[in-house]
């Protein structure tokens, strides 16, 4: 990967979640979660599948509607029924596990379409911004390629560039490397490290414990719809206090049952 240009984050903002509840029918997925993410902070959400971490992330930009609780994000009261939802989402970048690039558009157009249709930028202005961010993720040369001509890792980096092109003040990552071939995971994590270093507020659902330990300011461990344990990354991953955190980390870090000595 070519050396990325130094990214700049215009105005990182935080997000405050208070007593969040979410149910699907009779199943309660989030049972009262409160989290405060400070501007520029990198928070990793870890936990077993079904623990509610992706749901929590998707509640932040209201892709899932919470049943109870409040969320303020990027200066918007997300749970206010009168919130300007589209305007709020334009300030909150999101990266999905399955990339969700628009297959009928080139990488460049993927990055430009929302700038033009949502922010009202001209094509030239939007394309210039897009190229800048494609350069930042190391894909300037592949701007004219279509998603099906790109590897998984490249697609995910385009997806990151697409989100950055809206100049968000906060980024959400929903298991961004879970669908990738092992050899392309590093490129995506590299881009995310750069972004974290540049001061972007990031909330990352991930199973990459190495990334969480090195990059996150704080790690939250979720299980059964509850926030079980949180703290500085090295402490939670290196020295978990709660029994459920310990058994989860043991399984993730040593899947074959071995313990390194």
């Amino acid at each position: 990967m070519s050396t990325p240009a130094t990214p700049h984050v215009p105005a990182a903002q935080g997000c405050t979640i208070t007593n969040l509840h979410k149910s699907y029918g009779d199943v309660e997925v989030l049972k009262g979660i409160s989290v405060d993410v400070k501007p520029g902070e990198v928070v990793c959400l870890i936990g077993p599948s079904g623990s509610g971490k992706s749901t929590l992330l998707r509640c932040i930009n209201l892709l899932e509607e919470p049943n109870d609780g409040t969320i303020t994000v990027a200066g918007f009261d997300a749970t206010d029924p009168d919130v300007q939802l589209d305007e709020m989402r334009a300030h909150v970048g999101m990266v999905f596990q399955s990339f969700n690039l628009f297959p009928h558009m080139s990488a460049l157009d993927n990055c430009s379409i929302a700038q033009r249709r949502v922010l009202g930028r001209s094509r030239d202005e939007a394309d210039a911004t897009s190229r800048e961010h494609l350069e930042q993720v190391g894909l300037a040369e592949l701007a004219d390629r279509y998603p099906d001509q790109l590897s998984g890792g490249q697609q995910q980096r385009v997806a990151i560039a697409r989100a950055l092109s809206m100049q968000p003040s906060l980024m959400l990552f929903d298991e961004p490397t879970s669908a990738l071939d092992p050899e392309t995971v590093g490129d995506v994590l590299g881009v995310m490290r750069q972004l974290a270093k540049a001061g972007m507020t990031m909330v990352v659902v991930t199973h990459e414990m190495g990334f969480a330990r090195d990059v996150a300011d704080r790690v939250l461990f979720m299980d059964g719809g509850l926030l079980v344990e949180q703290g500085p990354a090295r402490e939670v991953i290196g020295n978990p206090q709660h029994e459920r955190t310990q058994s989860f980390l043991a399984r993730v870090l040593h899947p074959d049952g071995t313990v390194d000595g």
Partner: peptide
């Protein structure tokens, strides 16, 4: 059309 396409569009602020 996969649901993720619509979600990605909405997450970028499209109506």
């Amino acid at each position: 059309v996969p649901k993720g396409q619509y979600e990605a569009a909405r997450s970028l602020g499209m109506s």
